[in-house]
Design a protein around this nucleic acid. Structure first.
Lengths: 250, 250
DNA sequence: GTATATTTGTACGTATGTATC
DNA sequence: GGATACATACGTACAAATATA
């Protein structure tokens, strides 16, 4: 320790924000030390001594950083450098989506549209990079979805896995995580959105169409398949918010 | 007040996390009351009385929510419902980008690629929705960029405004905010990335090409223009992070 | 298995900074 | 300026979780 820069004397000078000060100092500590996610951070007492702030301030700063997944705190263990996941985005967006339930619900339709646009935008890359093995995996998922749909059962996890795998093949970690995040937001705001029986089947078939289009290396029909895929979801979400359902048991 | 649900008796039961408890309670308070961004929240003392937690717990919970921009605290004023901006995403991603500086820097290249893919994916919509007035504004920005480039000056703000306006025309608020967020991350991690003189001019011309393609309603050349636009940025960022390996030419 | 040390979590009291009237 | 109602910061004490001996 003693590598955390102490708070500048600041003799009665503009107090500014003690908290932001501490946050900034912890951040620069991590950067200067070139720490990696999972690495151990100084204990609260060490930070108190090094930074020269009270325990309260240190803890509140860590709370902020923890919310952003920049640090991860384990009770009785210590604090570690966080994974910097998309968790903060999920929390923020999900709450925003829930809040918009009472009003327009535009956030969620915007979200679905982004998902579609992202996948349409990545269509050429998908065709270029997806190999036969991955394509076979995707097809297996799509077939399983159709089977479940015909049995009248939902297939949440398969759907999620399909889109994650699709993005994963691109090799852009950020876009995979974004996709995952958007999915989680959608799942949290519209949990098990009550899809019509017919839509389950339609969506399952849309997934097969996606696989087909990639296999045929046909960009246009792939883009079309994505649009078809998101159509029922868009409709369901629109209905969900137009309904203004009061029952929020859970 | 007294509308904030008090902490359940929880008679000696697993205390779980007091903090998450408080966080959840504040969230449900906002949702139940159907509050909108900017609305006033109960004071700390009121929350203490209503929830039955200590000031410390309340404050730490608010700190977390504040980091996610779910609540906004104004010193001496009170706490308000936050704007739920993309601020949390920016903070988290920016720090992640900074951390990756020492290693691969892949986060930033992924980020630039996402920006390109998003705009390429939205190309058809842009052509469809952008009217002459907005197109004229964009052209004005592009021309100003080229002028500045020829004078050897950078044009950070014009570039940002260009892309925000472009997305804004789509009508998808989320995608606009995502674009803005990505921009901010890029600006913070690679501040005024030292672009070559030639690249400034090339990028400015790429913006003009984008405007031209939209005006001509030519989707393919619009997508091509976006690729051309991001090429120098990709190269610059790659160079920025690969300063250890001077062997990689172009 | 128990005890103990370490570390984070919660609580409370008090003083100070900040904005409104 | 004064009074009031806030959030902010500090210090201390104790509880809870975890690891180690």
């Amino acid at each position: 320790m003693s590598d955390v820069p102490p708070v500048a004397p600041r003799n009665g000078l503009p107090p500014r924000s003690r908290n932001n000060d501490v946050i900034e100092r912890i951040k620069t500590y991590i950067l200067d030390k070139q720490l990696r996610p999972g690495d151990l951070l100084p204990t609260e007492n060490e930070l108190i001594a090094a930074i020269g702030a009270s325990r309260t301030s240190i803890r509140e700063a860590i709370k902020s950083l923890s919310a952003l997944d920049i640090v991860e705190v384990r009770h009785g263990h210590g604090s570690y450098v966080g994974r910097m996941s998309m968790n903060a985005l999920v929390e923020s967006l999900a709450f925003r989506g829930l809040l918009s339930t009472g009003t327009d619900g535009k956030v969620m339709t915007d979200l679905v549209n982004i998902r579609q646009m992202l996948e349409q935008g990545l269509s050429p890359l998908m065709i270029e990079t997806l190999n036969d093995v991955e394509l076979a995996n995707l097809r297996e998922l799509a077939v399983r979805m159709r089977r479940l749909a015909m049995e009248g059962q939902p297939y949440v996890e398969e759907d999620r896995a399909f889109h994650i795998r699709l993005m994963n093949a691109i090799g852009n970690d950020l876009v995979t995580q974004l996709t995952e995040a958007f999915w989680q937001v959608q799942a949290r705001v519209a949990p098990t959105l009550k899809v019509e029986e017919a839509d389950w089947l339609r969506t399952a078939e849309a997934h097969e169409a996606i696989v087909d289009a990639i296999g045929a290396k046909d960009v246009d029909s792939l883009r079309e398949a994505f649009a078809t895929h998101y159509d029922p979801i868009r409709r369901t979400i629109a209905a969900l918010f137009a309904d203004q359902t009061p029952g929020s048991a859970e």
